[in-house]
Write a protein that binds this DNA or RNA. Structure first.
Length: 861
RNA sequence: GCCCACUUGGCGGAAUAGGUAGACGCAAGGGACUUAAAAUCCCUUGUCCGUAAGGACGUCCCGGUUCGAGUCCGGGAGUGGGCACCA
């Protein structure tokens, strides 16, 4: 108990109230039917062992919302868990000879303690960890269900290989050609991998973005670009008769184009080096084989790929142009991608930059078929729209109309058809790592691939694993684990030794939270009751990773009727990064902020005295050492100060600059508030809920309170937490100027009324101090946490005057007090009678007037 | 190259719907208290002119719409982010 102390001791106050909340089960949620449910979720953390400032920010934001909604009468679900699988645990095992499970469990314990010290209002009874056997079991059931529904398949494909993590990665995990965690250049390998059929939902994933009204536009745009829909046509090109003796290749060569209108400009065809026909041809031609081998080497290395020129090799084949019947040479070209469209294109040098370069190099014809609308000469290649030329029946058509015309013609001729293609690829979800969810599949000796029998679930990881070998898949290297038998037939079998991408784990955890101990993966009724998540909060770095995968899972589960909702997150909020200035010593080594000493505006190293350079502020990161440890901050100032600072300085979606003066400022403010409350003696003063205060003297305080209830509520509703903080300070600046000892009993009631409301308003932000103040104010028997959110009665704002601005020709000239709520005519009549207005006008003629009641009187002279 | 977002004092940022630009805070300067310092409290603080009253200018730049533009429209610059041989 702390309120007997004479200084603000945040640590003891915070510990005290955290225990009370836990004892009273304030934040436990029971599933209740009805529409007053509200599900707030922040992206669950990877248990690295220590919270960082980014965590403090996102969890504070989520908690303000959860506590606010609870006060507003919502039945709030606010759970927390652990994204517990992943590489760092395995790395720790290599380095420190500790089992990943033990390492992870220890980290969870530490981080849970740290999170609890922040006073976040989680329902810890719903805690889940993705490495729990129960979660693994339920997830394996989902895997098998997807497998049976053909939403999962295994295939050999070029995969992104991370040479540091020794595993494949999904396309979404490759950023700028580098591994998203390791940061090293990704290699390409031809491997047999498990894929999730995310492309089956390409169109739905794209279309339903429109339904996500409460998502940030930039995230939606990123997903839209990632899905990358383009519409055009597939066109069949027949090879000339003399070329038709190629074994294993039947039928026409099909190309995809978004510009079928330019077909009369086609002067060559080009195949991807790994196109089926290229592979066939390489068997009989040494030169082609050489070309493809060279390409494979370049292709596996992103860096040289970027610099590589457009090259190709003539195949010796010719195709027939479907309209002109001319023969067109077929090339293999290194810039054609097998993974997009059909892996083959027709080259139109006049209207495509790449084709233009290629044609120049190999002296291929450049035929212009689109001209500018004005018929002026244009520079080739010209990729824009225009008027068709040199195109037979298309001539003079607008290129967009030509596109439609040619598709119709192709369809009539049965030489092609309208096609829509997507950039998005299926999700490669297997990983050659130990610390992940085992894939519940066995390979039977007769060659059959089968899911593990449901009675055998969960398939758990073996404990006795040798981490001393750095190469290879640890599960695959285990002496016995993978050997098993088929329970049905008794045949020998080998287990799948790959584990699942951790993004699989996080693609459905938010649904599991609804009923985390249910016997099946999803309790449909309860999940439907809570989901979609009303407000999800997390970092934008997951725009095309987790957020896309979770949307896909939701659609997949919905298609299997496991849930009735179609999108996982109704509202999404992406908080900004926490940044800090960076510092370097004279040798350009990064140094920690706390090692820097400031003297006469110059910076020195605290210990060595070396001069220090201050560099720009960037996201806090270990490598640049510009980090501030939240655990130390909470120890020094308390969680409330840290939370308050996180909310005050920047809008939540923008970057937040961490400064020591900022955190100090927040702390000073809380101390000032605490001191103010401590010297009050208001516990005996009371007021009725419908308290109506009329006395002239303290009108200001009651009015302002109502006004600010309204303002603060609106700011919270709009996620403008920094504005809400400013308004909270404004209201407190009003009451801090009151000397309670000078007030009569009516005045004391007004003060108590104002303070009571103010504490509730601030309670989502600094919950511990709010409880303490609540108690000091005399409400020992209740918790501010379970109070109703105040309602502003705007009738109380009976300010009888309005400040009206008098403008002449749009320039402000006077600000006048006049009675409030006069209509336009009354306002003008009143103002025109006033001497100051008459003086202003002088003897000039008034041409026109405008009145905005209570705001503006504008004169045109 | 394509797409998106942003640009307001020394700094972080406010500004319903086009209607007093700079709320709230940080930093800075001055003052009070103190033997002194810290802490606290009070005052000043967009720029320029003026002793002052007051005036002029001012939301990245240029132009437009309007009685009135930080806000709307057209053009341009800069910063940040996403995608990138996607046919």
């Amino acid at each position: 108990m702390s309120n007997n102390e004479s200084v603000y001791n945040a640590n003891s106050i915070e510990k005290y109230w955290q225990e009370i909340w836990e004892k009273e089960k304030c934040f436990q949620t029971n599933s209740v039917d009805g529409n007053k449910n509200y599900y707030v979720l922040e992206m669950f953390p990877y248990p690295s062992g220590r919270i960082h400032m980014g965590h403090v920010r996102v969890y504070t934001l989520g908690d303000v919302l959860a506590r606010y909604k609870r006060c507003c009468g919502y039945n709030v679900l606010h759970p927390m868990g652990w994204d517990a699988f992943g590489m760092p645990a395995e790395n720790a095992a290599f380095e420190n000879n500790i089992h990943p499970r033990d390492w992870t469990k220890k980290n969870i314990k530490n981080m849970k303690e740290q999170l609890k010290s922040m006073g976040i209002s989680y329902d810890w009874s719903k805690e889940i960890s993705t490495c729990d056997p129960e979660y693994i079991k339920q997830q394996q059931k989902i895997f098998i269900k997807f497998f049976k529904a053909k939403l999962l398949y295994k295939k050999e494909a070029w995969a992104n290989w991370d040479p540091v993590e020794n595993t494949v990665l999904a396309n979404e995990q490759v950023i700028d050609g580098k591994g998203w965690r390791s940061g090293v250049k990704i290699e390409r390998k031809l491997l047999n991998q498990w894929f999730l059929s995310i492309t089956k939902f390409s169109d739905e994933l794209l279309q339903d973005l429109h339904l996500l009204k409460n998502w940030p536009e930039n995230v939606k745009t990123m997903q839209k670009n990632w899905i990358g829909k383009s519409s055009g046509a597939e066109i069949s090109f027949f090879l000339e008769a003399k070329c038709n003796n190629i074994e294993d290749f039947k039928g026409p060569l099909v190309v995809f184009t978004t510009r079928p209108d330019t077909i009369y400009g086609a002067s060559f065809l080009a195949l991807a080096p790994d196109h089926q026909l290229s592979t066939i041809l390489s068997k009989t031609s040494k030169d082609i084989k050489k070309f493809i081998t060279k390409w494979e080497e370049t292709f596996s290395n992103e860096e040289t790929l970027e610099k590589s020129q457009k090259e190709g090799i003539f195949t010796g084949l010719f195709a027939v142009h479907p309209f002109t019947k001319k023969s067109i040479p077929v090339y293999i070209a290194n810039y054609v991608l097998s993974s997009y469209g059909t892996g083959a294109i027709f080259g139109v040098p006049a209207h495509d930059e790449r084709d233009y370069i290629f044609a120049e190099r190999y002296k291929l014809p450049i035929i212009q078929v689109v001209n500018s609308y004005s018929n002026q000469e244009i520079k080739l290649p010209y990729v824009g729209a225009g008027k068709m030329v040199n195109s037979d029946f298309l001539n003079n058509l607008d290129s967009s109309l030509a596109k439609e015309a040619i598709i119709k013609k192709l369809e009539n001729m049965k030489a092609g058809s309208r096609k829509v293609k997507y950039r998005i690829r299926d999700w490669c979800a297997s990983r050659q790592r130990y610390w992940g969810c085992p894939i519940p599949i066995i390979y039977r000796e007769d060659g059959k691939i089968m899911p593990v029998d449901e009675n055998e679930l969960p398939v758990l990881l073996p404990d006795d694993i040798d981490f001393s070998k750095k190469k290879g898949n640890p599960l695959d290297n285990h002496p016995s684990w993978k050997y098993t038998t088929c329970k049905e037939t008794g045949l020998n079998a080998i287990r799948e030794t790959d584990t699942l991408d951790t993004f699989f784990d996080s693609s459905w955890y938010f649904i599991r939270f609804a009923d985390p101990s249910h016997k099946d993966p999803i309790n449909k009724e309860v999940a439907d009751n809570w989901c979609p998540v009303h407000q999800y909060v997390g970092g934008i770095e997951h725009a095309v990773l987790h957020l896309l995968y979770a949307r896909f899972f939701t659609k997949a589960l919905s298609s299997l009727e496991d849930i009735s909702f179609n999108e996982p997150f109704n509202g999404l909020f992406c908080q900004g990064m926490v940044c800090h200035k960076t510092y370097q010593d004279s040798k350009k080594n990064w140094i920690y902020p706390e090692e820097v000493r400031r003297e006469n505006n110059k910076l020195y190293h605290k210990d060595t005295g070396d001069s220090v350079t201050e560099l720009r502020s960037v996201k806090m990161s270990k490598s640049k050492k510009n980090i501030v440890d939240p655990v130390n901050i909470i120890k020094k100032y308390g969680a409330d100060t840290a939370r308050f600072f996180m909310l005050s300085d920047s809008p939540p979606e923008r970057k937040l600059e961490w400064t020591s003066s900022g955190i100090d400022g927040s702390n000073k403010y809380l101390i000032k508030i605490w001191n103010f409350f401590k010297k009050l003696k208001l516990s005996e003063v009371s007021f009725y809920e419908d308290y109506d205060y009329k006395q002239e003297k303290n009108n200001n305080l009651v009015e302002k309170t109502h006004l600010y209830i309204d303002k603060i509520t609106k700011s919270l509703d709009n996620f403008q937490y920094n504005v809400a903080v400013a308004q909270i300070r404004e209201l407190s600046n009003v009451f801090l100027s009151y000397e309670a000892s000078n007030e009569d009993s009516e005045g004391l009631i007004a003060i108590k009324f104002s303070l009571t409301k103010w504490i509730i308003l601030i309670s989502p932000m600094i919950p511990h101090l709010a409880e303490e103040l609540w108690k000091i104010l005399g409400y020992e028997k209740t918790l501010v946490t379970s109070q109703k959110w105040p309602k502003a009665n705007l009738n109380y704002i009976k300010n009888t005057n309005a400040k009206i601005v008098v403008q002449i020709n749009g320039k402000k000239k006077l600000v006048l007090d006049i009675p409030k709520n006069l209509n336009k005519k009354q306002t003008q009549e009143l103002l025109m009678k006033r001497e100051d207005v008459k003086t202003l006008i002088g003897n000039r003629d008034i041409k026109k007037t405008f009145v905005v009641p209570n705001k503006i009187f504008s004169l045109v002279i």
